[in-house]
Design a protein around this nucleic acid. Structure first.
Lengths: 153, 153
DNA sequence: CACCATAAGTTCCTTTAAGAGACGCACAGA
DNA sequence: TCTGTGCGTCTCTTAAAGGAACTTATGGTG
């Protein structure tokens, strides 16, 4: 129900959740990413209530994740598209896919595969360090306070 | 409110959301990751209701993301720790941090920084392809149906 | 023209989850 | 015995999700 808004916390995870943490939002994004980008298509594909879909789309547009644009003048018809900010959120979706594939897909195997244009192979995402390009995960880092850290007396 | 459960969808994003998509869950994980791992610590640090914290912890334990273990016999006292499954979810948190840093941190800059043990430098996560090790994002892939895809007549 | 269909919402009512705070239990130390 | 701490449970209120009917604008068909 999330009455508590996370946007004011000094934590990038909380602030990211504030934008796409509400139920359905990541699934809406995923659908727009693969071309399911109109109101009724989204509603039918997800089985989401029209009321909630309206609220989520408005929030995502207001937060510059999606852009609403008219694809027909008369009758007036709209579709939603990813902004640059929204496109970068797809990184998050791909990591979610990876974890879901590993831990929840079971016998059947992954529902989708990625073919990487650069190499032509089927691959999945891995996290690397921006400084040295080598693999990086939570067990191989120190977490330090940054400039935007909350002031702790 | 999320009455709709996502776990049955043939989508790894939905199935991942089923495990950690509810409000507060990613923040609980983040805290356990940095050593805030006991009930009262979590409750105070996050300002979450004790009722909801209880529910989330139980769900995360039931789903093998966290492990509840006794650190004192008498009086009985418990703390929560990441399992292997939970540790891999931290990849997701790090990607959330990256997006939040880029798009929501503003003037103040990132609240936390990572020092990568392998190179000693401050870095952030980047997505690379498991097949060729080069950078990979949603604009550079084709999405194909995998073995676990829903049967579409 | 009358009638139905479609896209994109809006409105209303019910059900369920979140928030807040009081309460309970087991023990330790003074 | 009294107080404090850790780890919860219980209860009550409020807000959000689900579901379905309704609206508006328009185009197509008989």
């Amino acid at each position: 129900m999330q009455r508590t808004r996370f946007g004011d916390m000094a934590c990038s995870i909380a602030r990211t959740l504030d934008v796409i943490g509400e139920p359905w939002s990541p699934l809406i994004l995923r659908n727009v990413m693969v071309g399911i980008s109109r109101f009724d298509q989204l509603q039918r594909n997800l089985g989401i209530s029209r009321k909630v879909l309206t609220e989520r789309l408005r929030w995502l547009v207001d937060n510059d994740v999606l852009e609403r644009r008219r694809y027909s003048e008369r009758p007036p018809r709209y579709e939603y598209a990813l902004t640059a900010k929204g496109t970068e959120l797809c990184d998050l979706l791909m990591v979610m896919v990876r974890w879901g594939d590993r831990w929840t897909a079971g016998e059947a195997g992954p529902p989708v595969l990625y073919r990487h244009h650069a190499c032509g192979e089927i691959g999945h995402v891995e996290l690397h360090c921006s400084a040295c390009d080598r693999p990086m995960d939570v067990t191989g880092i120190d977490i330090l306070p940054g400039p935007g850290a909350a002031v702790t007396a």
